[in-house]
Computed example of a mutant assay.
Amino acid sequence: MTKAGDGDYSLDEIARAWLIKMRGEDAAALRGEFDAWLNGSAENREAYRRAEQRMAALAILKTSERHGSAHAEARRGRIKKWLPWGAAATALALLIVAIGAGGAPLPGQRGGSSAAFAAEPLETRRGEIRTFRLADGSSATLDTDSRLDVAVGTDARRVRLVRGRVRLSVAGQDVPLRIDAGRGTASANDAEIDLSLDEAGTVTAMLRRGAAEVRTDAVADQVTPLREGAALAYRSDGTLAPKAGPPPALPAHWPDGWAEYRSIRLDRLVAEANRYAAVPIMIEDSAIAAREVSGRFQISKTEPFAERIATLLDLRVERRADALYLRRR
Rank of each mutant, 00 (worst) to 15 (best):
I129E: 10
L106K: 05
A205C: 11
R126E: 08
A101T: 06
A287W: 11
A29S: 12
S113V: 05
E120W: 07
D145A: 13
G184N: 12
S139M: 14
R319S: 15
A15L: 00
A57D: 13
L92G: 01
D194Q: 03
A211S: 13
P255C: 08
Q53R: 12
A278V: 12
Q109R: 08
A29E: 05
R130Q: 10
I264V: 08
F297L: 05
I309G: 05
L195P: 03
A27H: 04
G172Y: 03
L122I: 15
G108K: 02
A252W: 08
T216L: 04
G238L: 05
G238N: 05
S139N: 02
T204G: 04
E13A: 08
D145E: 12
Y261S: 07
F132Q: 05
T90L: 15
A51R: 07
L148E: 03
A220S: 09
L232N: 00
Y48S: 13
G86R: 00
L326A: 04
Q109Y: 10
I264G: 08
L122H: 01
E228G: 04
G153M: 03
K301C: 00
W82P: 01
M206S: 08
E123V: 13
D26I: 13
V97S: 07
P247C: 06
S114R: 05
A290F: 13
E303D: 07
S187Q: 00
A28G: 06
L30K: 12
S294Q: 13
R78T: 02
A230P: 14
I264N: 01
S64W: 01
P304H: 13
L83Y: 13
R50K: 15
N39T: 07
S138C: 08
R50H: 12
